[in-house]
């Protein structure tokens, strides 16, 4: 299948990332700029700043904590809009920086198994397609397992990505046992001496106990073949999701031992600020962000640029 938007002249990657994130930033920086009209940091300004953070999905407690820190330090002092933004960005970046860690498959493992999970529609399959292309470009032998046997045409969708990336593709029957597909894929990846196996799973809401149990079963079955697998369990979060993302991390972590996060859809106006709250609470590595639909649109997560874009520095 063709990808009309992948063709043609494309601006540089950095410019695209910036453009994507700048959209995220604009509203927030507007809020700060208007808040700082007077030049002196007062309570009304702080309230407006807090609202700016809330509107960026940071959530009330996280926003309140950040503003409290700012208040202690700066209340009543002269502060330009840029200074306040820089301080806020610095504080946010400081929380996120220790967690910025790209997915790094261990070459000693044959294969390094990556399980990808998340609620419906967050962009799991697309993200896997991008990951596969990247690993392939880096010279790895990649196997993709279509363990989403539930959603109609999910297997076909992954197949298209697999073909684009030039990966080996393993799928089972529609409606079949996802754990079975994972088992077969791992068996095959081991036999072929593949470097990386990425397992796609069906989207599931975290409050569906039976579906979460199914995910736990996939993990168990992988462990039966290779006790150290899965080596990464990546939870894909949608930047447009609000505070519910926190609950998603919590529940997925309890069943599947989530080892890292990828946040998608940061190319819209959603700011993904909930990631700051999540970082605070779970201290999970943040591997990458998705800023578009083509293969190059998966970027390593950078705390500085994320925080700066969030606050509009």
């Amino acid at each position: 299948m063709s990808d009309p938007r992948g063709a043609g002249v494309r601006p540089g990657l950095l410019a695209r990332l910036k453009a994507g994130l700048a959209r995220s930033a604009s509203t927030f920086s507007d809020a700060i700029a208007s808040a700082l009209g007077s030049g002196r940091l007062d309570q009304a300004t702080l309230d407006q700043l807090e609202e700016g953070l809330i509107a960026a999905d940071l959530g009330v407690p996280t926003a309140a904590a950040l503003i409290a820190g700012l208040k202690e330090e700066r209340l009543g002092k002269e502060a330009s809009a840029d200074e306040v933004r820089a301080v806020l960005a610095g504080r946010i970046a400081a929380r996120l920086a220790p967690l910025a860690r790209p997915l790094a498959p261990d070459p000693a493992r044959k294969p390094h198994v990556i399980l990808v999970a998340g609620v419906n529609g967050t962009g799991k399959t697309t993200t896997i397609g991008k990951l596969a292309a990247r690993f392939k470009a880096e010279g790895h032998r990649v196997v993709l397992a279509a363990a989403d046997t539930f959603r109609a045409a999910a297997i076909e969708q992954l197949k298209v990505w697999s073909d684009r990336a030039g990966a080996t593709f393993v799928a089972g029957a529609v409606g079949g046992d996802p754990a079975g597909v994972a088992f077969e894929a791992l068996t095959r990846a081991m036999a072929e001496g593949a470097d990386i196996l990425i397992v796609d799973t069906a989207g599931r809401l975290q409050n569906k106990a039976a579906l979460m149990e199914e995910l736990a079963k996939i993990v168990r079955v992988l462990k039966r073949l290779e006790p150290s697998a899965p080596h990464d369990v990546v939870l894909v979060l949608d930047a447009t999701t609000g505070q519910n993302a926190i609950g998603q991390v919590e529940v997925f972590q309890s069943v599947g031992a989530v080892s890292g996060l990828i946040m998608t859809k940061l190319d819209g106006t959603a700011r993904g600020g909930v990631l700051v709250a999540i970082a605070e609470k779970f201290k999970l590595p943040i591997h990458a962000i998705g800023v578009g639909e083509t293969i190059e649109d998966l970027q390593p997560f950078e705390a500085d640029s994320f925080a700066r874009a969030l606050t509009g520095v």
């Binding site: 993302a245 106006t269 909930v274």
Partner: peptide, 12 residues
């Protein structure tokens, strides 16, 4: 619209 949508709902 996804019911899980956060603040971005307004822009959308």
């Amino acid at each position: 619209v996804d019911a899980l949508t956060g603040q971005d709902a307004v822009k959308v």
